[in-house]
Nucleic acid binder design. Structure first.
Length: 881
RNA sequence: GCCGAGGUGGCGGAACCGGCAGACGCGGCGGUCUUAAACACCGCUUCCCGCAAGGGAGUGCGAGUUCGAACCUCGCCCUCGGCACCA
C-alpha cells in the first residue's frame, strides 16, 4: 500500500519542521481505518499476549495520571507486536461508583447521564494518545449487559455458600445515610455533606466468603508479582497460628457464671501468666456480663469506642484505655480468677473478639496493666534469672529474635513457625510460675499446653486471619442491584436467573440527600416472591464496585456473550492475563479481590486458571503539583489536552516515560517537557535532513581517508548496536526513563556526523532505521511518519513501522575494544587507565603499578594487596596491612 | 500507629550484582549563526579551596560491617501509597 498523503522527501529544506498537529491525527485515522489493532482472538498461529491496564473510572476527563498508566502500557503492546505476538490490549470503563452520585446530587442530574457523557469525552481523549486499544472489546460496567453477570455470579455464590448476610455496623448520617470513610470528616467525625455527627448503625449486609480462600491466596506460586505487593497481600491476609482457649466466667452476685469466653492467642505458652481478660467493646457478652454498678461506665466506654476509627484504635502509640465490667473469668489451667475488661484495642472482627492478657509478655497488655495497676506475672525467663524480679518492659518475641533474619523480614510472622525453628539459645528460655511446666523449655510449652487443654476440651490449635470476609453491600443507587428478594415467609430469595438482570431504575430523585433513593422507589421495591408468589420486598443494597473490577478482563474476551458471563474456551486460551499494569494503590484490595474471584469462578467451573494476572507491574501515581492526589475536588488536576495541543501526543508520551522510574510517580511538573520535544525535533532533523549543517559542529569527525572511513563506520555501528542492546533490556523491564536517555545519547552521537560524508554510508542508514524502530513503541506517530518517508524516498510501498520486526543486536559490533579501568589506592580514586578489553590481571597490574600517579600515591608505603574487582572493572591497591 | 515504597547537584533523575557518584534531560553560564532577537547548533555546569595543576568534602541524620557502602546491618528523622463504603 502506498502512502499517498505523505509529502515526498525530495523537499529537504530545513523549513519543513516537525509538526505533530499535522501528522498525529493522520496516522491515528489511518491505524483505525486499517483496524491495525483489533485482535483476532481466534488466531492460533502466533503467540498470544494479553496485555491489560486497569480500566479507568470515568471521572470526567482524562488527566495526566491516566496517560502515565496507559501510554507506557501502549508501548509494551507495540513492542510485543514488533516481536510477532498476537497482542490483545482492551479497554473499558469502571462506570459505577460514588463520584457519579455525588455529581448527581450536587447538580440534580442523572448519574447515568453524567457517567456516559464522561465516557464519551474519555473515549475521544484515549484515542488522542495514539494508543492501540482493541475498542471492539470494550466493557462498560454500568451497562446491564455487564452487570447482569455480576448478579448472575452473585446468585451462584449464594447457591454455593460463598455469599451470606450478616449484621455489621456502618458509619451513618441521619440525613445522608451510609457514609464512606472519605465522607466522614474531622476529629469529631461529622458528615461531609451536612455536618451532622456520624453514628454507627447496625445493618444486615451481604458478604462474600473471601476467608474461604485465605490460605490459597497466600500462595503466589506460578505468578510473577513484585515482592512488595506479595508482602502487602500476605500481611493483609495476616495468617496467625495459635490456639483458641475456653475461659469460663466466675460466679458473681449479678451473674451465675459458667458462661464460655473464647479467646484467641498466638502465645498459649504464656497462659499461666494471664492476669486479666479483655473483650472488644462490641463483644456480644458484654451487656450480659456487666455488673449493674459498672453499667454506666461500660456504656459510656462502648459509646466512646464507636466514635473512633479502627486506625485510631489499633495505634500502638496511643495510651491504652479500658474499663472493668465487674465480672471475672477463670483460667482453665490454674483456676485463677482474673478480672474482665473491655478495651478498644481489642477488635470484634479479629480472632474471637476477646483476648487473655499476659502483661509480662505482650507490650500492649503490659502498658494496660501498668496503667491500671494490674498484676504482672512472668512465665518465661532465662534459665538462671530470678523469675519474680519486676519487669520494666514486656519480655516479648524472644522466639522472633532468635529466628533467622530471612524469616523475620517478611513481617507478620507466625510465632509458632518461629518457635518451631527455635535455636539452641531459645531453649535456654524456660517456663516459670507455670505449675507443672516450671523449668521446661518455653519452646516445648507452646504445643504442650495446647495439647493438655485439648484433652480437657478447653482449647485447641486454631488459625486466625486478619483478612475479613468481603462486605459487598452498598446502601447506594449507582451500582449493581443485589439480586435478592426478601419474602416474609421464604426469607432472602435469589432472583431467578431467567429474571436477570434486575435493572437499575433509570429515573432517580436524590432530593439532595446521599441516602439511597432506591429505598423510596416503590415500583422497584414491591415485587412478588419467586417462591410463594406472595408480596415481597426487593433488596435495595447495590454491590461494591470492586465486584465489577474483579472479573472484567474475562468479559473483554466475549463482551456481548448473552448466555453466560464468560466464554470458557476463550478464557482457557487467553488466561491468565500476561501483563497487568495499574496503580500501586490497588496492592491489596482490587488485586486481592481479583484473585479471590478467579478462584471462586474456577470452583464454579467457569474458568480453569487459578490466578488472574501472571505478571503485574504497579506504576507510581502522578500527584498534583501540590503533591496531593489529583482530584477534581482539590482542583489540582492536570489536563493533558493542552499539552497535546502544544507539543503533540508523542512528546507527552515520551515526557511521561522520561520523568523518572515508572513505579515511582511523583508530583506533576511539566518542567523539562521542552527537552523531550527538542529530542524528537532532532530525530526529525536526522531523518529528514542529514546533510544540513544549520550552523553545526565545526569539529565533527569526517571520513577523509579509507582508514578514517573504517573508524567512522565502526563507531556508528558500535553506537547503534550498544544502544539497541541496552534499549531492548530497558523495554523488557519497563525502564522507560533510561531507555529514552539511551536514545537521546545515540541521537547526540549521530548528530555529530550530520553534514559529513558519514551520512552517505550504509551504517548511517542502519543507524537511522534502528533509531526509528527503537523509538516506535514509545513515540508511534513521528516514527510512522519518518518511516513512511524513508520508504517513499526509496520508492518502496508503505508498510507500517509498527508491524516491523524488532532489530537484532550484533554483539560483535557492540563489543568494546578497550576499556577504562579506574585505579583506587586505599579505596580512593587516584587514576584511570585505558587498556585493551582482553588484558589479563597480571598485565593490567603491571600497567597500573607503572603509572606515575599510582607511584606517587603509594609513596614509601608497603602494598598489602591488590584487588581486581568485578572481573577487571576496577583495581584497588591496599596499602600497609 | 501498622504494612509497603522512597529520600542522591539549583530541579527531574542515573549508577541493574558492594566497585569511577551525578548518565540523560531541565535550569544556569559562555560561544557560533543573526543587523538584532527568537530558533537551531557547540561547549561548561555537585560543593569548597586554587590562576592552574591539583587537593578536600559529598548520596536524609547517627553508628557499624568491608580493601571498598548511595547500595548491606542497627537506631533515628522526613515524604508518599494502603489500612477494608474513593476508585
Amino acid at each position: 500500500m502506498t502512502d499517498t498523503d505523505t509529502t515526498p522527501t525530495t523537499n529537504r529544506t530545513a523549513a519543513e519542521r516537525y509538526d505533530p498537529a499535522r501528522i498525529e491525527p493522520k496516522w491515528q485515522d489511518r491505524w483505525a481505518e486499517l483496524r491495525l489493532y483489533d485482535t483476532d482472538l481466534s488466531d492460533d498461529s502466533r503467540p498470544r499476549f494479553y496485555l491489560l491496564t486497569m480500566y479507568p473510572y470515568p471521572s470526567g476527563a482524562l488527566h495526566i495520571g491516566h496517560w502515565y498508566i496507559k501510554t507506557p502500557t501502549d508501548a509494551i503492546a507495540r513492542y510485543h507486536r514488533m516481536h510477532g505476538d498476537n497482542v490483545f490490549y482492551p479497554i473499558g470503563f469502571d462506570a459505577f461508583g460514588l463520584p457519579a452520585e455525588n455529581a448527581a446530587i450536587k447538580n440534580r442530574i442523572n448519574p447515568r447521564d453524567w457517567t456516559m457523557a464522561n465516557i464519551e469525552t474519555m473515549r475521544r481523549q484515549l484515542r488522542s494518545m495514539g494508543a492501540t486499544f482493541a475498542w471492539d472489546a470494550e466493557v462498560v460496567s454500568c451497562d446491564p449487559e455487564y452487570y447482569k453477570w455480576n448478579q448472575w455470579l452473585f446468585v451462584q455464590f449464594l447457591k454455593h455458600g460463598l455469599a451470606y448476610r450478616a449484621v455489621s455496623p456502618v458509619d451513618w448520617c441521619p440525613n445522608d445515610g451510609t457514609l464512606a470513610r472519605e465522607q466522614v470528616e474531622g476529629a469529631d467525625r461529622h458528615c461531609w455533606r451536612c455536618g451532622a455527627k456520624v453514628e454507627k448503625r447496625e445493618l444486615a449486609q451481604w458478604y462474600l466468603r473471601t476467608t474461604n480462600y485465605a490460605d490459597e491466596l497466600l500462595d503466589f506460586s506460578g505468578i510473577d508479582w513484585p515482592e512488595p505487593i506479595r508482602i502487602q497481600q500476605t500481611n493483609w491476609i495476616g495468617r496467625s497460628t495459635g490456639a483458641e482457649i475456653v475461659f469460663e466466667t466466675a460466679p458473681s452476685p449479678h451473674h451465675p457464671g459458667g458462661e464460655e469466653l473464647r479467646v484467641f492467642t498466638t502465645r498459649p505458652d504464656t497462659l499461666y501468666g494471664a492476669t486479666f481478660m479483655v473483650l472488644a467493646p462490641e463483644h456480644p457478652l458484654v451487656a450480659q456480663l456487666t455488673a449493674p454498678d459498672r453499667k454506666a461506665d461500660v456504656d459510656a466506654y462502648v459509646a466512646a469506642t464507636q466514635a473512633k476509627t479502627e486506625i485510631d484504635r489499633l495505634s500502638t502509640d496511643r495510651e491504652k484505655t479500658g474499663v472493668p465490667i465487674g465480672a471475672d473469668a477463670i483460667n482453665p489451667v490454674n483456676g485463677a480468677r482474673i478480672p474482665i475488661f473491655i478495651a478498644d484495642y481489642v477488635l470484634a472482627t479479629y480472632g474471637t473478639g476477646a483476648i487473655m492478657a499476659v502483661p509480662a509478655h505482650d507490650e500492649r497488655d503490659f502498658a494496660f496493666a501498668t496503667r491500671y495497676g494490674l498484676p504482672i506475672i512472668r512465665v518465661i525467663a532465662p534459665r538462671d534469672a530470678d523469675p519474680d524480679e519486676p519487669l520494666t518492659e514486656a519480655f516479648v518475641n524472644k522466639a522472633v529474635d532468635e529466628a533467622p533474619a530471612d524469616d523475620r523480614k517478611h513481617g507478620w510472622l507466625e510465632d509458632i513457625a518461629l518457635i518451631n525453628k527455635g535455636t539452641d539459645a531459645a531453649r535456654e528460655l524456660v517456663m516459670v510460675n507455670s505449675g507443672p511446666w516450671n523449668g521446661k523449655p518455653a519452646v516445648d510449652a507452646w504445643h504442650g499446653i495446647v495439647e493438655a487443654l485439648e484433652a480437657e476440651g478447653k482449647g485447641k490449635e486454631a488459625v486466625t486471619y486478619r483478612l475479613r470476609d468481603w462486605l459487598v453491600s452498598r446502601q447506594r443507587y449507582w451500582g449493581t442491584p443485589v439480586p435478592v428478594i426478601h419474602c416474609p415467609t421464604d426469607g432472602a430469595v435469589p432472583v431467578p436467573e431467567e429474571d436477570l438482570p434486575v435493572l437499575l431504575p433509570t429515573e432517580v430523585d436524590y432530593r439532595g440527600s446521599g441516602e439511597n433513593p432506591l429505598n423510596r422507589d416503590e415500583a422497584f421495591i414491591n415485587v412478588s416472591c419467586p417462591v410463594c408468589g406472595g408480596p415481597a420486598k426487593r433488596e435495595t443494597d447495590t454491590l461494591d464496585t470492586f465486584i465489577d473490577s474483579s472479573w472484567y478482563w474475562f468479559r473483554y474476551l466475549s463482551p456481548h456473550k448473552d448466555d453466560g458471563p464468560v466464554d470458557t474456551e476463550m478464557v482457557r486460551k487467553w488466561s491468565p492475563v500476561d501483563q497487568y499494569t495499574g496503580g500501586a494503590e490497588h496492592a491489596v484490595m482490587h488485586l486481592l479481590y481479583a484473585r479471590f474471584f478467579t478462584k471462586a469462578m474456577r470452583d464454579l467451573g467457569l474458568v480453569t486458571e487459578s490466578e488472574p494476572f501472571r505478571k503485574l507491574f504497579n506504576q507510581g501515581q502522578i500527584l498534583g503539583a501540590d503533591g496531593e492526589r489529583m482530584s477534581k475536588s482539590r482542583g489540582n488536576v492536570q489536563d493533558p489536552d493542552e499539552l497535546v495541543a502544544r507539543y503533540g501526543a508523542d512528546t507527552v508520551r515520551l515526557f511521561l516515560m522520561f520523568m523518572g522510574p515508572w513505579d515511582q510517580g511523583g508530583p506533576w511538573s511539566p518542567t523539562g517537557i521542552g527537552g523531550v520535544a527538542k529530542f524528537l525535533n532532532r530525530v526529525w532533523t536526522l531523518a529528514t535532513d542529514p546533510r544540513g549543517r544549520d550552523g553545526g559542529d565545526g569539529l565533527a569527525p569526517a571520513a577523509t581517508t579509507d582508514e578514517d572511513e573504517r573508524a567512522v563506520r565502526d563507531a556508528i555501528r558500535a553506537a547503534t548496536h550498544r544502544t539497541l542492546r541496552d534499549v531492548t533490556e530497558d523495554y523488557e523491564s519497563f525502564r522507560w526513563n533510561t531507555m529514552i536517555a539511551k536514545l537521546m545519547e545515540l541521537t547526540n552521537t549521530l548528530f555529530r556526523y550530520r553534514g559529513t560524508d558519514a551520512v552517505e554510508l550504509s551504517e548511517w542508514d542502519e543507524a537511522i532505521s534502528t533509531l526509528l524502530l527503537m523509538l516506535a513503541p514509545a513515540a508511534p506517530h513521528i516514527t510512522e511518519e519518518l518511516w513512511a518517508r524513508r520508504l517513499d524516498a526509496r520508492g518502496e510501498p508503505w508498510d507500517s513501522i509498527h508491524v516491523q520486526r524488532w532489530p537484532v543486536v550484533d554483539e560483535r559490533a557492540a563489543a568494546d575494544q578497550t576499556r577504562e579501568v579506574p585505579i583506587q589506592v586505599n579505596g580512593k580514586l587516584r587514576d584511570k587507565v585505558t587498556v585493551p578489553a582482553g588484558i589479563s590481571e597480571i598485565e593490567l597490574e603491571q600497567v597500573v603499578m607503572a603509572r606515575d600517579k599510582v607511584i606517587a600515591a603509594i609513596g614509601d608505603a608497603h602494598v598489602a594487596r591488590v584487588i581486581h574487582a568485578g572481573g577487571g572493572k576496577l583495581v584497588n591497591i591496599v596499602l600497609r596491612g
